[in-house]
Design a protein around this nucleic acid. Structure first.
Lengths: 205, 205
DNA sequence: GTTACTATACCGATCAGTGGGTATGGTGTC
DNA sequence: GACACCATACCCACTGATCGGTATAGTAAC
């Protein structure tokens, strides 16, 4: 799986994982049949069970795949070069806003979706989702801490809690957007979060 | 057995709806079997299909039941008597925080949960969820508008968008709480939202 | 008798997972 | 080069269990 030649088509395993990212986010875990994924990936069920021992195991692999993709996306983002940590946070939110441009199931969070559906029924999956969300939140903590220091915030809340709050807002925004069927709603929620962060980290002139 | 049947227990239909509120929020729509609900409600499948034509119809009825219960709860809350609309909003959030005291699947939002799972697969259910969430959000708009006026806010955002944002935060907080398995997380997100509202509606002395 | 409700046995569709098979490509041996 | 050998990847037909829904028979109350 390491160094692969630059073929036009990814291999079956990757195609199944990509199909999973798309379909799981659109229809959820239980409503997605193994054969749906096979159809999207253009393989047969035999191939599916050659690569994954079970549907659960595919979901686990899909979350790992998701972490890899999104981790890369945000790690490579340009805003890390900004000098002011507050600006880095705001730029992060702006990027999240920009990502809303695609189709709805494409910008939604896989981990958030699966958390709801697997809670109490599939502990390993819930755990994997938790690690995914918490890991992403953790990547914001350093910037938040730096901003707190720079802007002299001592308000009885922790950097971790604000990092998790940003993720909560995003997750909630996705639900609202799904309910209403419009991405604009999610954008407005992110705008409110952006305003909150600007109010928290104010220039004390 | 005959004489004991006439207890103060709610009728079968209501017991099924209550079972649905509990079980659907805990396990989701697809993972909840009709017979699970029957077991919790203490009735048989025959009774279930006497009261509801299908599982979908039950879910619809459960959302209506949910709207009734929560609508009553918030309509009857004491804080509506407060004079300052900002204080009414803050008190609303405090009430939401207090409700987190119960077991996790008990304070979660049924509509938010079902939205995710029925998106693209059960349009009528998604619509019902949308109406439920939007309706609840709408009940906050008057107070937000009054607060905007009283505190002289003219910031390029609407009362509706802030109302929906509060719901987004709550929905997201529930997901995080489920992922981590602790209600405290949801409380912290609500605290951030509370702080945001206090920063928006500031006394300009 | 009729209406409202409950119970039980069953049907039919669905779908995760299996088993048995083929195709391809690599490797060692003579 | 030809051969056997083996591993990986893949396909198709099937199965066994699950579960929404139905058919039907009953009971209680007016």
């Amino acid at each position: 799986m390491g160094m692969e030649t630059r073929t036009k088509q990814p291999d079956s395993r990757t195609r199944l994982l990509n199909a999973a990212l798309h379909t799981l986010r659109a229809k959820g875990y239980n409503a997605t049949r193994v054969e749906d994924l096979c159809a999207v990936a253009g393989v047969t069920k035999g191939s599916f069970f050659h690569h994954f021992r079970s549907k659960d195991e595919l979901a686990l692999a899909a979350i790992a795949h998701w972490d890899e993709l999104t981790g890369g996306l945000f790690a490579a983002a340009a805003y890390h070069a900004l000098e002011d940590p507050r600006e880095r946070l705001l730029a992060y939110l702006d990027l999240r806003s920009e990502l809303l441009a695609g189709e709805l199931p494409e910008y939604t969070c896989l981990a958030g979706m699966l958390t709801q559906e697997t809670y109490l029924t599939k502990p390993e999956l819930t755990d994997a989702c938790e690690r995914s969300i918490s890991g992403h939140a953790a990547s914001l903590v350093a910037d938040i801490e730096a901003a707190m220091q720079r802007y002299g915030v001592e308000d009885g809340w922790t950097a971790e809690s604000l990092a998790l709050h940003t993720q909560a807002v995003l997750q909630g925004a996705f639900i609202l957007a799904k309910a209403r069927g419009e991405a604009a709603l999610a954008a407005e929620s992110i705008a409110h979060l952006r305003r909150y962060i600007m109010l928290l980290f104010r220039d004390r002139t």
